[in-house]
Amino acid sequence: MPAAFKDYYTTLGLSKSATEVEIKKSFRKLARKYHPDVAKDKKTAEEKFKEINEANEVLSDPVKRKKYDELGANWQDGGGYRPPPGGRAGAGHRADGTPAQEFHFEGTGFSDFFEQFFGGAGRRNYGFPSGEQEFTADGGAGRARRGADIEGDILVTLEEAMLGTMRPISMQTADPRSGKAETHSFTVRIPAGATDGRRIRVPGKGAEGTGGGVAGDLYLRVRLAAHPDFRPRGADLYYDLDLAPWEAVLGEQVIVPGLSGAIKVRIPPGTASGQQLRVRAQGLPIGKSGDRGDLYVVSNIQIPTEMTDAERELWEKLKVASSFDPRSDSKT
């Protein structure tokens, strides 16, 4: 099952030479447009939102982006990935070169292509001491061996993490010896308050055991989808609020979006750029406790780039009238 190449640049409407700022901008714009909570056609929007997130996950990370660019240069039409001399392709082989049992997920929010090359967890064979022995003369014959655990990523939106959700997953496995494909469908519960990196264990959905051994487990690692407005850190959320200089100096009442409705926030007079204003209990749920993390509104003072003559005059007046010296410390 060779994974199809994904053109992440096209997904985000960017050229290959796009800068980090352009990638961020384009992602935010598209994520706002296709966010499942906002879009009218939910089904199509959801698919699109996942694609945008996956593209952003790779392109916004310089290391992953470099790898992706190299992959693209080595990709053959229809033939999949052509590994550079000396290297080996993805996760499809064991150390001795024999093909490993292949897994292919649907419903996790990530494409096969992503899973194969960028899945953070990789396909580690924990719990199966010596996966390579399966094909040796005595390996497996009559001896009960527990199947390997499988790891995969699952894309979860902040809204899903907020409320918890049930996600249908289908997993196709192909036996490398017989080529027989099997599909397992099951539903996985994403608990409310699932944080980034948390592993959800699905018992018995890993690789099959041999010689009467039980199957391994499937571990799905939660990847919180990037949100156009919020950045999660544990159960806390961060929101970057752009402010005009006079708003920061004089104070202001602003409305900021929250995951459970808009919130009125008072910006106190004299708010510095980068200052964090805490709004209690407006973050993600903390486990089953019923408590919630906090929302941090981060002040981000914007400087006007264009101004009228009248505005310039006012700034000039302020310059003369003000006794404020931002560099007074360095003069003493």
Partner: peptide, 24 residues
């Protein structure tokens, strides 16, 4: 396999040490 049956045994589970020993 039984499709579409919620498999929520994994959700926020707590395991006693005996269960952990058996699983691992």
């Amino acid at each position: 396999m039984n499709p579409n049956v919620p498999d929520d045994s994994a959700a926020a589970s707590r395991y006693a040490i005996e269960a952990v020993a058996e699983i691992t």
